[in-house]
Nucleic acid binder design. Sequence first.
DNA 1: CCGCATCCCATTGGATACTG
DNA 2: CAGTATCCAATGGGATGCGG
Lengths: 100, 100
Amino acid sequence: MIKFAEKPLEAVLELLGQRGVYTILRSLQNGSLRFGALQQVTALPPRTLSLRLKELEELGLISRTEHHEVPPRVDYTLTERGRGLEPALEALARWEEKIG
Amino acid sequence: MIKFAEKPLEAVLELLGQRGVYTILRSLQNGSLRFGALQQVTALPPRTLSLRLKELEELGLISRTEHHEVPPRVDYTLTERGRGLEPALEALARWEEKIG
DNA sequence: CCGCATCCCATTGGATACTG
DNA sequence: CAGTATCCAATGGGATGCGG
C-alpha cells in the first residue's frame, strides 16, 4: 500500500479505486452516516467496509465519532481534507454523466 | 475487474488506482508518447505498463498507433473521452498542491 | 449495533529474462 | 523498440462466526 506521507495523491487514488470508496465519500457529502447505513449504500461485507473506513481515516479524509450509548452508535464524517476532494468528485461525476 | 459497460466510473476509478495510471494520463496531456517514454515516466516494468495501456485502451481513454517501421514504433494518445477526464485530473492535482 | 478474527481463494503485481 | 513468457509473492475481498 502506498504511504500517504510519501505520495498523498497516489495513496488517495489507490484507495478511491477500491470498491465502495467513491460511494462512501459521495454519501458523506450530505452529512454523517453510521456504519450500518454505509453498509447499505455500498453493499460491502462488514469486514471490507471496516477496512476501507480505517484507511480513509488514516488518510485523514474522514473522522470517526463514537457515541457511548447502548446500543452502540458510531458515525463517520468528512474532514476538511476530505471536503477538499469534492471538486474532484464532482468533476468525475460530470464525466460519468457525459458518457453514461 | 469492473466492466466499463456496466459501471464506467467505477471502472475508471479502479484503473486510476493502479500504479502509474494517473501519471500516464497526465503525461499524455502534452501529446502522444511512445512505450519507452511511458516506461521512463512511470518507472513500471514492461509487463505492467503493457497491461495498463491495454486496459486504458479498453476503456477508450487512450488509443494506440502502430507505425510500421524499423525499428518498430508505437505511440499512445489521449482520446476524446480521455480528454474528458482532464477537469477531474486537474482537480486532483490542485488538491495535492493544497495539502502537499 | 459495530466491527474484529479466521479461513480461503482468485487475481494481480513485480522482477527478470527473452523475442519479433 | 515494443512488448511477451515465466515464476513468485502479496493482496483484495467474500463467507462465516464471535465479542464488546
